[in-house]
């Protein structure tokens, strides 16, 4: 096992923290992707990658921030940018994909998908649910 040369000055607590965040982040990403392969329908599968984009990315970004801040090699601008970028973009892509899938399923008349009810009926439904 080759040790990491540029990390020789890293104190033990920081090395352990970095290792912990790396293992948690990468492990959750893997679990999410396993779920992505195993879950039966598309609407269930859309939940699986969010593990990788929430805690997976968070863990790796945290590990990298601790590593380079403790070593003080460089400012951690990239990590912060990547974290913000993934947090903002993932919901957008997932929502667009989900809406596209709903649209296609409705166009095909898939019975498992809630249909696009006329707005008037839904208003009454909404009011009824609120009154309950």
């Amino acid at each position: 096992m080759s040790s990491i040369e540029h990390a020789a000055d890293l104190p033990a607590w920081a090395a352990l923290a970095v290792a912990f965040f790396l293992v948690v982040g990468a492990g959750l990403t893997l679990i999410g992707t396993i779920g992505f392969v195993r879950l039966p329908t598309f609407y269930e599968r859309i939940h699986a990658p969010t593990l990788g984009t929430s805690w997976g990315t968070g863990g790796v970004v945290m590990a990298s921030m601790i590593f380079f801040t403790v070593l003080s090699t460089r400012p951690v601008v990239h990590e912060i940018l990547i974290g913000i970028f993934v947090t903002v973009t993932t919901p957008v892509t997932l929502m667009l994909l989900a809406r596209a899938t709903l649209h296609r399923d409705r166009a095909e008349g898939n019975p498992d998908v809630p249909g696009e009810a006329p707005a008037q009926v839904l208003v009454e439904d909404g009011a009824a649910t609120k009154a309950d």
């Binding site: 939940h47 919901p91 929502m95 707005a119 839904l122 208003v123």
Partner: peptide, 23 residues
Amino acid sequence: TSTPGTAWLEYNSLSRTVLIHVL
């Protein structure tokens, strides 16, 4: 959407309801 287990699918601005899928 960014909370695992719930996904925001569609907002209907006429009826002011949102369709959410829950795992």
